[in-house]
Amino acid sequence: MKNFTILSFAAAGFFFFSGCKEKPITIPELSVGGRNVLVEELTGVKCQNCPDGAALLNNLNNQFGGNLIVVSIHAAGFYSVPYSENKYDFRTPQGTELANFIGAAQGFPAASINRRLVPPETELYLSPSIWTGQIAEELKEEPTIGVFVETDFDPVSRKLDVAVNLAAESVLSGEHRLTVLITQDSIQDLQLVGTTKVYDYYHRHVLRTTLTQPTGNVIAETLSPSAVVQKQFSFVLPPDWEEKHCSVVAFVHHGIDPNKEVLQAAEEHVMK
């Protein structure tokens, strides 16, 4: 009996501690390929923690420059309902439809990163603790399609013409969609920060409207290296949208559940 006990302890000890010494994990240098990363952030003026999320994205934007494209969607339910003191209501039917198309969030702020499902998460909207790592992961990849946006804005008529060129690197099979939308940066308006109402808060990358269906327009043409697909859009900017802070964002993505992954995104200012 005594021998058995000793043997049990020895086996247990071996079981647990024999593998304590492990090969150290190497942290690689951050590599940035040609792929841009689209971050669709769910936010709201009454969401007290959302400014922390916006600050994190702002830091990452500074770090990754043009490779990171942020769209802030004010469709966080109750948290996006404006206060009576708000100058603007950032909610739009298109924003709500787009947000619902992506899925459900498990709290706010939340963001989808290239609409990629990241196991073990069950939703495309991710909590801020995951954003940085997932953005870094996506940045490493090379795009399978090039997305190029050209804008032409007439300040008098306020008409904006947009041309989106799609150049596939290889033949892409399956359904692909194109979503084109307009964001406006640096809008000063009330935001709840913690428990304080900040009246001159700068709202970044606010989704204003979509030029396609919010769920994306299905691309009927074959996406192959032999031909560039061009799509054109026109839109008249409302007078209260400051054109110098407006941008056009275009991206190609899958559209059928569960894979809604964004293959490539591009952003271009309305005013060059």
Partner: peptide
């Protein structure tokens, strides 16, 4: 997969 996410996060 978890280690990959950790490494990607720390790399930034």
């Amino acid at each position: 997969e978890t280690v990959n996410r950790i490494v990607n996060e720390i790399a930034t």
